[in-house]
Amino acid sequence: MTSTFGGTVTDGIKDVTALLPLLGTEQCEEHVGSALVGGFLYAAVAPLSLFGSLGIVRAGVKALMACIRIRTFMGAKLLRDAGFVPVGKALSQIMWDGECHVAEKQLTEMLEKLHITDMEKLSVEENRRNWNLWLLCCSLPVAVASIMPYIYVIRNDHTDPKYARWLYPLARSIGGCLTATMVQFIIQTRLMEIIRNRLVFLRLDAIVKREKIDPPDWWDAKKSSEVVLYKFFTEVSANYLRRTEQGR
């Protein structure tokens, strides 16, 4: 009876242990990706989860890839084409939706809803210093607290060298906190860049419509502002160089 009961408990623990990493992964990825909306504690306490390290890494990789922009190459578009689904309300803003970023679509819809047509008076400001400071202040004690569950094992395990016993807890704690905080900085910077580029495009588009200029085929408000602006400035630079050479 004891053996049967012990076996049942052991099997149950194994099942729960196998399930917890899945739940922790999704939850931590959601919290890290939503911290700018839900609050800095979402990201600060995520490294406390023993089973959520993979979720933090996934959020970090997606954020890093989504922020890559080389000319007309968009990392966010590559993520979408590869089948990666954005997790988190803030992280999804810099992801790709259709022909542009989610933030661009939402900004355009908001301007239309508020009936704002004078784009030259629009500007964007940021005030993230205090928020980021609180995030860092909360992440430091969390980094220390996340090591505590390993102390008992480290002190009683004599099969490995002492430095090897501390290696994984320190790497998981420091790496998790650094990733969770850096993701917020990356999303903030990239989101501001996307919004500023969108406003620049809307101002130029307003001038094109007011002056009744016939734009090229690639001039489309439904496409990414960064792609359109890159083509625009490339063409302007090429025309300027051509005229300079002809003037000589």
Rank of each mutant, 00 (worst) to 15 (best):
G7A: 11
G12W: 07
G12Y: 08
V16W: 09
A18Q: 05
L20I: 13
L22W: 07
L23F: 07
G24D: 11
T25G: 06
Q27A: 13
Q27M: 12
C28Y: 03
E30D: 10
E30I: 03
V32Y: 06
A35R: 09
L36I: 07
L36S: 05
G38S: 13
Y42A: 14
V45W: 07
A46H: 09
A46S: 15
P47D: 06
L48R: 07
L48F: 05
F51T: 15
F51G: 00
G55K: 10
K62D: 10
M65N: 05
A66G: 10
I68R: 09
R69Q: 14
R71H: 11
R71V: 04
F73R: 09
M74V: 01
M74R: 15
G75R: 04
K77G: 14
R80E: 14
D81E: 15
A82I: 03
G83L: 09
G83T: 08
V85N: 08
V85G: 00
V87L: 12
A90D: 12
L91R: 12
I94L: 06
I94R: 07
E99I: 03
C100N: 11
V102H: 05
E104D: 02
K105P: 00
L111S: 02
E112F: 00
L114W: 04
T117F: 05
D118F: 06
E120P: 02
K121M: 12
N127M: 05
R128A: 13
R128M: 12
R129L: 04
N132P: 00
L133W: 12
L133E: 10
L135D: 08
L135M: 13
L136R: 09
L136I: 14
C137Y: 14
S139V: 09
S139T: 14
V142K: 11
A143P: 00
A143M: 15
V144Q: 00
V153S: 12
D157Y: 10
H158C: 02
T159S: 14
P161V: 11
P161G: 11
A164G: 03
A164W: 06
R165Y: 02
R165L: 15
P169R: 03
C177G: 02
C177Q: 04
T179P: 00
A180C: 03
T181S: 13
V183G: 07
Q184S: 01
Q184Y: 10
I187M: 02
R190N: 11
L191I: 01
M192G: 13
E193F: 06
E193A: 12
I194S: 05
I194F: 05
R198F: 02
R203I: 01
L204T: 04
K209N: 06
R210Y: 09
E211A: 08
D217Q: 10
W218D: 11
W218T: 05
W218K: 02
W219H: 11
A221V: 10
K223F: 00
K223N: 15
L229Q: 02
Y230A: 11
K231G: 06
F232Y: 14
F233K: 03
E235K: 14
N239S: 14
N239A: 14
N239G: 04
L241W: 05
R242W: 06
R242K: 15
R242T: 08
R242F: 08
R243W: 06
R243Y: 07
Q246E: 13
